[in-house]
Design a protein around this nucleic acid. Sequence first.
DNA 1: TATTATTGGCTCATAAACAACCCATATGAC
DNA 2: GTCATATGGGTTGTTTATGAGCCAATAATA
Lengths: 112, 112
Amino acid sequence: MAKPQTRTYSRYTQNALALLANQIREGRIAANFTAEALAQRAGISRSLLQRIEKGDPGCAIGAVFEVAAILGIPLFEADSKILSTRLAYSNEKQALLPRAVRPSGKAVKDDF
Amino acid sequence: MAKPQTRTYSRYTQNALALLANQIREGRIAANFTAEALAQRAGISRSLLQRIEKGDPGCAIGAVFEVAAILGIPLFEADSKILSTRLAYSNEKQALLPRAVRPSGKAVKDDF
DNA sequence: TATTATTGGCTCATAAACAACCCATATGAC
DNA sequence: GTCATATGGGTTGTTTATGAGCCAATAATA
């Protein structure tokens, strides 16, 4: 009972995936890393890295982020320190939110 | 012959995953979306959305990005227009890069 | 040009992701 | 408090991702 098979992606998602993939490839070349070498560092196979550099939506997000991290590509445009600060803030905020949502009659936001 | 089994992640990757997960959950609640409702919009199951909101590194990056896109969470801190502009620029840059890397003697960058 | 290594693109076997249910609990509205 | 439902967490079976290996083509250097 698992059939993602044909999953669709918004243009925004497609572009974001493509951009991240490009940054990874550019970063690898800039850092003078062989695909094999980078894959090894990230603890993944070369074939997976190839798919990552092609922007395959099916790749595990952990693997993609790890490769990006190794190359020093800033996720969220934030360095290590800022990221953890934002995370801490986010966690506090989380605690204040309601835990269940009651859909209020109608739709809310559909524009992006 | 597939055994990711025990994959390790840098702190940076872990934080980035957690932050994105938090933003998604916060965004869903802010938009007054039920988990079920959001999952349907994204074309995924509720159980997958739950894993996404917990920051599971094994989730497909396409699914995560799509959910983020629906909620209007800016990936790369960029809106739709800026994102496509950056992608176009990145593609041009890509064409100018060498296609194969010759590892020059020693290591390069290991600090991030 | 010759040489060597990187890369792209396959196949295959296996581990993992995913969807569809289920139930129990907690939550929000009344 | 009562009620309806959203959520957390677990299970199951199928689909998919992943690692390993291989080969051909390509690209980088001498």
